[in-house]
Design a protein around this nucleic acid. Structure first.
Lengths: 345, 345
DNA sequence: TGCGAGGGAAGAAACGTTTTGCCGTTCCGG
DNA sequence: CCGGAACGGCAAAACGTTTCTTCCCTCGCA
């Protein structure tokens, strides 16, 4: 491990001052193209790598963005958000510093302090499911945005999926296939995500002039809830031909309950859900048609917004950004057995 | 955003020199307990947060550990490894800087360079499935370890799951339940993970004196492969009562194929697999008995090893560490229908 | 009383950049 | 031919710590 070579070594080798090297490499200042080129070449030859620590100290700008999330382990969502954020940061010459509190507030506080000490330029505070939160005070020392979370008491920017549009999109897909008896199996509507999706479902039903049938289950939505929900749905609405599930695990439960009853998917029951968990959606048989949450985009958008705040001190647009989602078509939707003939007036 | 307060502000407020503040806060140097206590108190009152950038520059030690992984999005594994590494790093006052290349070598090189520029003290290079790799040159500038990967050409430390023990453990579980006809559905044995698990399976079969029946499928192991594998297994070995699947998605396929044939799990077919993907294993019905990979432990171990290298320049123990795995009991294993009576001699 | 030891604290240098201000040279127009 | 702008480049200060060295003072002992 030989001594790291620095700007002065390059300067010596090129027979110029450190200042000139700095200028040459950063494209600042006035200098002959010849010198600039020669210095750059020598730097490359020597394998010079800038020391971002020194640079950060001098410039009072670390080019590091802190990314705090409550979970990274459990949900594959996190990864996509981080990826989007990382890509966007890299495009701007910044690096992400990701920490996960595993939902422990004490750990979270420690980590936030560590990020502050690290002089991060800005912070992203991400939740892995849409939540209302109280933003920790460390977020207020530098620009910060929330992902999948909002805090009505602070004026931090917030980036969330457009839950209502999700409900709309999923239901419209089933309507478009010709279904008229569509149940929505979901969870407690205190979940912001559930609330929004229900609203979207209701909108779509109202517009289509069909009856809304919402089955609410306790908990956060897993296969068990999906199984029980389908049982209830069929008991209450035996004529059901399609289901819109709150998330992919619930959809998996619906598959299981359908199999138990000898209902085939999609011939007897069409399903649309939300999450696009690759590991479920594409492994189920038939593969699950589901709404993809815009995780990658949320990550990107967060960083873009942060740089906007860093560079201009101002933000454009809304404080609360809802990103639209898209449907991923697979195989779990088809027309109902007794297709309604649509009469064009 | 008021000016950040630094060590000199504390010094001024306490009527001492910056040196003394530094000593007081770090517990270095000789000084009266009274001064030390007073300085600490004043620092706390002023809300002093150390500037780790400045500290890093002076000490030539950033206390940042780079963590490079090929994937973070797709697999929930990554999260656990990162979590383990993060916890271990936090215990030692270090921070993790996680980057994901998304398996793009160009991106990876860029990110490695960025980490080098960031003056990371050490690096973790993680793959999300057990692989042979060629370690990139940037890893050699500071201590580094590989996770779920090994490079026979470098002398970097390597931390991997004990694949052979996995095969052993899973097969033994089925043997213990009384099964004598156990198929192993797996993938191409060029996968290091597959190779090791097959060996463990063969060991267990040999020791139990039963015939080994390995079904190899192309690809990396998904539900489709699992379905086809079970079909082949039953064609070749109709008397099969138990299956050991390479991973959870394949096990999911086995469930699907079993359902198609009217085989009940576990009554007609017991299953053990590997991964413990929460989202599959606990959502399947019956819940899947599966081997948990020691991700968290691998993360922790990697950091521990790195600090060993940083502090002593030496390592203890093996260059290639295989961590043992444990079985997570759920509901997919029971005794075979026609139980063999074990005669004690 | 003189002297050395040693505790407590301060001064100053150093880490590797970036940036400000300045200096010498050239070139142009008046 | 002179004044001044434009240009190319350099010296030095600054960023906030840590650490090496020095300094002062007190205390104990001969």
């Amino acid at each position: 491990m030989s001594k790291r070579i620095g700007i002065v070594d390059v300067a010596a080798a090129a027979g110029v001052s450190a200042t000139t090297v700095s200028h040459a490499l950063s494209g600042q200042g006035k200098m002959s193209a010849e010198t600039r080129e020669r210095v750059s070449r020598i730097a490359a030859e020597l394998g010079y790598a800038p020391n971002r620590i020194a640079s950060a100290l001098r410039r009072q700008r670390s080019s590091i963005i802190g990314f705090v999330s409550d979970q990274i382990a459990i949900s594959p969502f996190a990864g996509q958000i981080v990826l989007g954020a990382q890509d966007a940061a890299a495009e701007r010459g910044a690096l992400l510093m990701v920490v996960t509190s595993n939902s422990d507030p004490r750990v979270e506080a420690q980590q936030l302090d560590a990020l502050v000490a690290q002089q991060v330029d800005a912070m992203v505070y991400a939740r892995m499911s849409h939540r209302r939160v109280a933003a920790p005070p460390q977020l207020l020392r530098q620009p910060a945005v929330l992902i999948d979370a909002y805090d009505p008491d602070s004026n931090l920017d917030s980036i969330v999926p457009d839950e209502r549009q999700i409900g709309r999109l999923a239901t419209d897909r089933l309507l478009a296939a010709g279904h008229r008896v569509i149940v929505h199996v979901t969870v407690d509507e205190h979940e912001p995500a559930a609330r929004g999706r229900i609203d979207g479902y209701l909108d779509a039903c109202a517009e289509a002039g069909i009856r809304a049938r919402v089955i609410r289950m306790p908990g956060l939505g897993d296969a068990r809830a999906g199984r029980e929900a389908l049982a209830r749905a069929l008991a209450e609405h035996p004529e059901t031909t399609a289901a819109f599930a709150f998330n992919d695990p619930m959809a998996m439960g619906v598959y299981q309950a359908a199999a138990t009853r000898g209902l085939r998917i999609p011939e007897d029951l069409s399903i649309v859900s939300v999450d696009n968990l690759e590991i479920i959606a594409s492994q189920l048989r038939p593969a699950l048609t589901t709404v993809r949450l815009p995780q990658y985009e949320m990550g990107r958008f967060a960083i873009a917004r942060l740089f906007e705040l860093l560079e201009t001190g101002e933000r454009t647009g809304d404080r609360r950004v809802r990103l639209a989602c898209e449907l991923v078509e697979r195989e779990s939707v088809t027309a109902p057995r007794t297709q309604l003939t649509v009469t064009h007036p």
